[in-house]
Design a protein around this nucleic acid. Structure first.
Length: 543
RNA sequence: GGCCCCAUGGUCAAGCGGUUAAGACACCACCCUUUCACGGUGGUAUCAUGGGUUCGAAUCCCGUUGGGGUCACCA
């Protein structure tokens, strides 16, 4: 068969020589050991925790080695394209401090551009044409229905599904048949003519998993779709070669197609990059666990975490503890150091799927937030409220002084120990609500109505906003004693039956009356912040 | 089903042939405390299984079981 003529018929026209592409996209001039990694999302606009998980690995490995992280957009599938998706990806990742050196919509070196695969059609076609010319690729005229039927037959016969060996019908089409189909205007795809044999095993060193075995590919996979755009597999080979990627870190779901990629790199005469297949982030689903999915788990989208007001650094710290088993220990010893100082290694990455644990994230969040100054917390909460808060919540920030006092108290700043009540911005805003709005509801009092009233009246009678904390508490003790409650905790513990309760119960009544809640920071300070008028009004209203 | 990956408490995990099998989260108890939060002390709980190899196995090998991934003109 005249492959050259066939190639010309299939992909007519002059294409630049293959060598010219090697010149145009030369090997990068980087220090020894520097890694070039990439993030290559499809522009669906949806990014979830799993994407961030991978992004952090790529970012750390590139920048730690003095290399490059770039952003490539895999938009070969038009159906999945969403407007504004690239911006969304960039914004979401910027929030987590992932910075690109080059790539789509990135202000950087454009030697290896274009970064959108749709704009790279010419390169792909040039190489597809070459493969046809050397007889390693061929046109396939099978329709979707025919392929579906083939798959069903194979399944019924319990054979391996796919387009391979004797099932690769178009592979053996005669020259005549091919041209007849072409003349009839039948649509076609270009398939790789695989030379692999699944009996052969290839030993492979994965940067994360270590020594692995894969089976040689024998599938005649589609490399050019009928719209003239390549499939992921082919684009991956071309792009990662010409963008001079040295390390491809990707999810382990790609392990299954690694044989295809190996064959493609080989047939194209490209040196293969190193691969690292990282485990997926799993989610408990009933009594089984499964990979995070964008369809089923919208609550795991990065947007969800921004809406909840998770602190970016906390999420990053959590990802890092999952990603590198020795990170947590390092961080415990170096809580103040920048995260970049941690030496990230592919070897310390987990080989098995990790279950996402919101409790652990929440714990880390509390810790991270408790390290902030009142001003930093103010800024964090305000920027969250500006975007996601209610009108009332936005109003909390009008009196800056008051808010700083509230935060100082609620974070325990100035005390012996920092408080850790805040998990997320939205939860924190709920937590401090009572400083700015009257209680919408009251937790249940544990004393009867008569006692409650007596206590509140007693408090109002003695209340003096000028009292310091000690004088204030002394009065609470008096009220306790007057009503048959133990003024001293020790006395109550020594003989609980001698009292109706303790000063703690009296304080609780006042606490609920003032804030609506049984659990709050120091009540005296709260009343100081609220001021005399508001304090009296609230106590009065609770009677 | 074929192929591939994985396997230490409920979760994340340390461990690289000899350990009382770390640590963190969660949980429980107690202490501290006007509540809560913080902090402190203690506790419950793990090497999936069967065979080897070895003086000795969580660690090495094989089988089994279990879990996961993947089998598109999607990435």
């Amino acid at each position: 068969m005249d492959y050259k003529a066939l190639a010309e018929r299939l992909l007519p026209g002059e294409y630049p020589s293959l060598a010219s592409y090697e010149e145009k996209y030369p090997p990068r001039d980087l220090p020894k050991g520097a890694q070039v990694t990439r993030l290559a999302p499809s522009p669906t606009g949806f990014i979830h925790l799993g994407n961030l998980f991978a992004a952090i690995v790529n970012e750390r490995i590139a920048h730690q080695s003095g290399g490059i992280l770039y952003l490539r957009i895999e938009d070969t599938d038009l159906k999945r394209k969403v407007e504004g998706a690239v911006e969304a990806v960039k914004n979401a990742l910027r929030y987590f401090d992932i910075k690109f050196d080059e790539g789509a919509e990135i202000d950087g070196d454009n030697t290896y551009a274009p970064w959108y695969q749709r704009q790279r059609a010419e390169i792909y076609r040039a190489f597809v044409k070459h493969l046809i010319e050397i007889g390693r690729a061929y046109p396939c005229f099978c329709t979707e229905e025919e392929l579906t039927k083939l798959r069903e037959e194979q399944t019924a016969k319990k054979e391996i599904t796919g387009y391979y060996g004797k099932y690769a019908r178009c592979r053996n089409l005669s020259e005549e048949e091919i041209y007849k189909n072409l003349d009839a205007g039948k649509p076609f795809v270009i398939r790789l003519k695989s030379m692999g044999n699944p009996e052969n095993k290839i030993k492979f060193r994965d940067a994360i998993k270590g020594e692995i075995t894969v089976t040689e590919n024998d599938q005649d996979v589609v490399i050019l779709k009928s719209d003239g755009i390549p499939t992921y597999h082919f684009a991956h080979a071309i792009d990662d070669h010409f963008m001079r990627t040295t390390l491809v870190i990707r999810g382990e779901e790609w392990l299954a197609s690694l044989p295809i990629h190996i064959e493609l790199f080989d047939v194209l005469g490209f040196e293969r990059p190193r691969y690292g297949h990282n485990c997926s982030l799993m989610k408990q689903d009933g009594d089984t666990r499964r990979k995070l999915s964008k369809r089923k788990d919208p609550e795991l989208s990065l947007e969800f975490y921004r809406k909840e007001g998770y602190y970016a650094r906390a999420v990053k710290v959590y990802m890092l503890t999952l990603l590198n088993s020795n990170f947590e220990e390092w961080y415990l010893k170096n809580p103040e150091k920048p995260l970049e100082e941690f030496k990230f290694t592919a070897e310390k990455m987990s080989k098995s799927g990790t279950l996402f644990d919101i409790d652990k994230l929440n714990d880390i969040s509390k810790n991270e937030l408790s390290k902030l100054s009142a001003e930093e917390m103010f800024d964090f909460l305000k920027s969250w409220a500006d975007e996601f808060g209610t009108e009332a919540q936005k109003g909390y920030f009008e009196d800056r002084d008051k808010m700083l006092k509230v935060l100082t108290l609620c974070m325990g700043i100035g005390g012996k120990k920092r408080r850790k009540d805040f998990t997320t911005a939205s939860q924190a805003m709920d937590f401090i609500r009572y400083f700015f709005e009257k209680p919408a509801s009251y937790e249940e009092y544990r004393v009867d109505g008569e006692t409650k009233r007596t206590i509140l009246e007693g408090f109002l009678a003695k209340y003096d906003p000028a009292d310091d904390s000690q004088a204030w508490f002394a009065k609470i003790k008096e009220i306790a004693a007057e009503n048959g409650f133990a003024a001293e905790m020790k006395d109550y513990k020594a003989s609980p039956e001698a009292y109706r309760g303790s000063v703690a119960d009296v304080a609780e009544v006042l606490r609920i009356a003032t804030t609506g809640k049984a659990n709050t920071p120091d009540l005296w300070t709260i009343q100081q912040i609220l001021g005399e008028e508001e304090t009296k009004a609230r106590i009065g209203a609770a009677m």
